[in-house]
């Protein structure tokens, strides 16, 4: 009989790749543990959003969750460097960062009574608008939505010189339609799922940030498991979350194509001067978050590692 049940909650809904992979993960764990260990899944946000779910985990009502940056930040704000504006230009850089700082990041989870079973990013986030935006200057006058209480979006848009309009996510679609806002940001996959792509004309093809995500389990629950089950959980977590990350990157790329097909113009920024401006804005925004989310030393080390990696990658080409 099943001795250990991990109660797990996520915002992802049934039928999505996210949940399908999670079910595969659960099946693998059940099989390898001989039925001793398994997840009880609460999908579609029935247990609430990240902050609610984290409260329930602290309370012991739930044990595990698939969370986005907000939830990751609840564990430790330092981890949110993953979501910092204009830090990464592509998935290779993200993978490099996670590998290089693996021990430091894991320690951050454990220190705060969590175990990270695997990173599973939401994906690169793009700015969607109803007027063409190809440069920092074009941002001027965009009525940009921002997720209220999201310090990263606030910092990013502040350094871009716009004061965003805080609205709840459910109000964004109608507000794009009515013109209350004419700009928003999210991952392509989410944009299509939320139908935002039907209400915007342009997508700026410079990623604003890479939105993080992870599957975590409370250390309290993890410690009740015998060593062999812990190993099964960690190994499969890594395996399936890696698979999920690959799949979601493919799906995000496909979602951009869907948006194109449905009439969204994807704006490329070819001018290196313009790209440099975006990079400079990002640097400023990341700096403004020092002391709020992470310390100066950590930011310096991450920025340097990513810059070195980018240089070696370019020299290879």
């Amino acid at each position: 009989a099943q001795q250990y049940t991990i109660k797990f909650a996520t915002l992802a809904t049934d039928g999505t790749t996210w949940l399908n992979v999670m079910r595969e993960f659960d099946a693998a764990v059940r099989k390898e543990s001989g039925g001793r260990l398994g997840f009880k899944l609460y999908a579609g946000g029935v247990q609430g959003e990240d902050k609610d779910v984290m409260r329930k985990i602290r309370l012991g009502q739930l044990h595990s969750a698939g969370i986005t940056g907000v939830g990751v930040g609840e564990i430790s704000s330092k981890l949110r460097i993953h979501d910092a504006p204009f830090l990464f230009e592509g998935p290779e850089e993200v993978d490099f960062f996670l590998k290089t700082f693996e021990n430091e990041l894991s320690a951050e989870f454990t220190k705060n009574d969590f175990v990270n079973l695997g990173w599973a990013e939401v994906g690169f986030v793009y700015v969607l608008t109803n007027k063409p935006v190809r440069s920092v200057a074009d941002m001027n006058g965009v009525k940009m939505w921002a997720w209220e209480g999201d310090p990263i979006a606030a910092a990013a848009f502040q350094s871009l010189g716009i004061s965003p309009i805080p609205l709840s996510v459910t109000d964004v679609l109608t507000s794009l339609q009515t013109g209350l806002i004419n700009g928003a940001y999210t991952s392509p996959l989410a944009a299509v799922a939320l139908q935002w792509n039907t209400r915007v004309k342009y997508m700026l093809n410079v990623p604003l940030a890479d939105a993080s995500g992870a599957v975590v389990v409370s250390k309290k629950k993890f410690d009740t498991l015998p060593a062999d089950l812990q190993e099964i959980l960690l190994r499969n977590g890594r395996k399936y979350m890696g698979e999920l990350t690959r799949k979601s990157r493919d799906e995000n790329a496909a979602a951009i194509q869907t948006m194109r097909r449905n009439g969204v113009t994807v704006l490329e920024v070819a001018d290196p001067k313009m790209l440099k401006e975006f990079a400079a804005t990002g640097k400023k925004a990341r700096q403004s978050l020092v002391g709020k989310l992470y310390d100066q030393d950590f930011l310096n080390r991450v920025e340097k590692a990513v810059a070195d990696f980018r240089a070696t990658q370019r020299s290879k080409k």
């Binding site: 609430g48 959003e49 609610d52 609205l167 709840s168 109000d171």
Partner: peptide, 10 residues
Amino acid sequence: VELYRIGSNP
């Protein structure tokens, strides 16, 4: 915890 979700409902 559930009740407090009132405070986050716009």
